[in-house]
């Protein structure tokens, strides 16, 4: 049994302010730096982006979605790397016209797919990536690389996947531009480096930079982003502040029972206590229930556990959700 989906933004209905609108969906008082209106792009029969409206910035906005959801294509559209079939894009006051060079001069980009010139030493590669970014950019990139302890004299071909990712992040964070578009900037990084990169993003955003980043790992971006935009099948599924998402995720309680437990009886009991059962799953010899509750989960659990005649749960969790669980339990759809 599934409850109604709580507060998802219907596809294509995210409110996009016009230039005179002082507030937008994040609640921030400044004008959005990135504005996309009805952006659509298809590749042959496959619809990659199905009409996305988005207004973002300043600050860090996370674009979340499973693989193939259209995040990367949308980011490429924003940066002028992929021409949208329809829609309008304005980044830092520059409209996407022609080949998008006006946007690329006002923004920096880190690609999601890593393909670098392996034969170049890392320092030289940074120089190549930052061509046209002004004299100070290379020095800033080298300083960032030093923080990440990247061996800049070594050839890129000797770098691990994570080190290459860090090199791209350094190149994207170095230019003095108002907008950065980062496609999965923490993908492939170990937890320490991931933390360092997120710290760099914080610092950059604190200087007023608008950062739009994508990820399919909720745990990574909820630390960095003030706002989360959930994408599925090329559409925006929901657009919420991170705090709101966390708050709602905290209201989801997961209970595991032995496989033979009476799920109908358990469900009746949960509903009687004011819980809305979202999903039942039988997996690994267990019966799992995800329940969204209106009150403090501990209180609800205390009342549930005190009910007589019900099987005792083998495990109880609440407040932590993977992206797939978030999609399933908050938005009622399969995301990953």
């Amino acid at each position: 049994m599934r409850s109604a989906i709580p507060n998802p933004a219907p596809a294509n209905t995210t409110r996009v302010p016009d230039s005179t609108d002082a507030s937008h969906s994040t609640g921030a008082s400044s004008s959005p730096v990135i504005v996309a209106r009805a952006v659509a792009r298809r590749f042959g029969d496959k619809v990659a982006v199905a009409g996305i409206d988005l207004a973002a910035g300043p600050g860090i906005t996370g674009l979340l979605g499973p693989n193939g959801s259209g995040k990367s294509t949308f980011l490429r559209c924003l940066y002028g790397l992929v021409r949208p079939d329809a829609g309008e894009i304005v980044v830092a006051g520059a409209k996407l016209v022609g080949d998008g060079v006006a946007i690329r001069r006002r923004a920096a980009y880190a690609p999601g797919e890593i393909a670098l010139y392996g034969e170049l030493p890392a320092r030289e590669h940074l120089e190549w990536l930052l061509r046209g970014r002004g004299h100070g950019a290379l020095e800033r990139a080298l300083a960032l690389a030093a923080r990440l302890e990247l061996p800049m004299d070594k050839r890129v071909r000797s770098f691990s996947h994570g080190m290459k990712r860090q090199l791209l992040v350094c190149a994207a964070l170095a230019p003095e531009v108002p907008v950065r578009i980062l496609d999965e900037p923490t993908e492939g990084l170990d937890p320490t480096k991931r933390g360092q990169v997120l710290e760099m993003l914080f610092e950059d955003a604190s200087r007023g930079t608008t950062i739009l980043l994508s990820s399919h790992h909720l745990g990574e971006v909820d630390r960095a982003c003030a706002r989360l935009v959930f994408v599925q099948a090329g559409r925006i599924l929901a657009d919420e502040t991170t705090q709101a998402v966390k708050s709602r995720a905290a209201r989801v309680v997961r209970l595991s029972f032995v496989a033979g437990a009476d799920d109908a009886r358990l469900e009746r009991a949960m509903l009687d206590l004011g819980g809305a059962t979202i999903a039942w799953q039988r997996r690994d010899g267990e019966l799992r229930a995800s329940v969204r509750v209106a009150e403090e989960p501990r209180d609800w659990l205390a009342r549930f556990l005190s009910l007589p005649g019900l099987p005792a749960p083998q495990a109880i969790e609440h407040g932590k959700l993977s992206l797939a669980e978030l999609y399933r339990e908050l938005y009622g759809v399969e995301g990953c």
Partner: peptide, 11 residues
């Protein structure tokens, strides 16, 4: 590497 080539701020 076409993407990183195109990502530079040049026409």
């Amino acid at each position: 590497t076409l993407e990183i080539l195109l990502a530079r701020p040049m026409s």
